[in-house]
């Protein structure tokens, strides 16, 4: 990949433009890494997420929230801090508002719109409050697209709530968060970003191979080992039967 950038530099691209390109290329590759991680969590570990896009959206929201600018790079903890803050605002507000709207019989989309309106209001209030009351301007500088991305998660949360229990929605949301956090942690490591740039095509190749493997994986998921532990831990019935019907053993046991 380095050669490509050298050629581009010879053709007259400035150092800044090359840095920009490198960032976009890294992010594009990261997209495939995040979906691979999502697939790994779903099919091999067995963690469910709200839907396919929510962990991806959340990972990039974390990433963008942690990103300061091209020269300063990113701050991992900043991403986590603001990301979690916004995620919980969205989760708590949407469950509360949906809970109170449930009793009024309403059409689905207007209901979601009301939930999103309330989430947006809460976020605006939070920004105003933190700046006015605590003199903190951190939220002012946040990337607005990340905030919008996290806000749209309200739809995934509410549609899950509409069909399942709160307990299920909570577990699934937490699993989405976990997947996103792990993906974010991985792509935030400087070394990983360097490797992505250095071994661009090899990484694409590895990702394709990995996904072919996950795509054909028919083993039990980690969570299924837990779910079926009663079945998996039973003594094999054949052995149990053998112990009983083996006449010599039986005689011994009755003799004793």
């Amino acid at each position: 990949m380095k050669i490509l950038f050298e050629i581009l530099a010879e053709r007259g691209l400035s150092a800044y433009e090359i840095l920009l390109l490198q960032k976009s290329f890294t992010l594009l590759i990261t997209l495939t890494i995040v979906t691979t991680i999502s697939g790994f969590f779903r099919y091999i570990v067995g963690l469910k997420s709200l839907n396919l896009y929510s962990p991806i959206i959340l990972t990039f929201a974390f990433f963008e929230l942690g990103y300061i600018d091209l020269y300063e790079g990113s701050d991992f903890l900043r991403g986590i801090k603001f990301g979690l803050f916004l995620f919980f605002i969205v989760f708590i507000t949407s469950t509360l508002i949906y809970g109170s709207l449930k009793k009024i019989g309403m059409h689905y989309i207007p209901k979601i719109t009301i939930v999103i309106t309330c989430v947006v209001l809460t976020i605006i209030l939070a920004i105003i409050l933190t700046t006015l009351a605590f003199n903190k301007t951190g939220l002012v500088y946040l990337d607005i697209f990340s905030i919008i991305m996290i806000t749209t998660l309200a739809d995934s949360i509410v549609s899950t709530l509409a069909r399942k229990t709160f307990k299920y929605t909570f577990t699934v949301s937490m699993q989405t968060l976990l997947t996103a956090l792990l993906s974010y942690a991985l792509i935030s490591i400087d070394k990983v970003q360097e490797i992505i740039i250095d071994y661009f095509f090899i990484i694409i190749f590895i990702i394709l191979i990995l996904n072919l493997y996950i795509g054909k994986f028919i083993g039990l998921r980690v969570t299924e080992f837990l779910r079926f532990k009663d079945l998996l831990l039973v003594e094999t019935s054949k052995n149990a039967k053998k112990n009983i019907t083996d006449p010599k053993k039986q005689e011994k046991s009755t003799g004793a």
Partner: peptide, 15 residues
């Protein structure tokens, strides 16, 4: 080894 043996009997979502 018990789990490995029994695993062959249980069906998971992937399979």
């Amino acid at each position: 080894s018990q789990i490995r043996k029994n695993r062959k009997k249980v069906l998971g979502l992937n399979e």
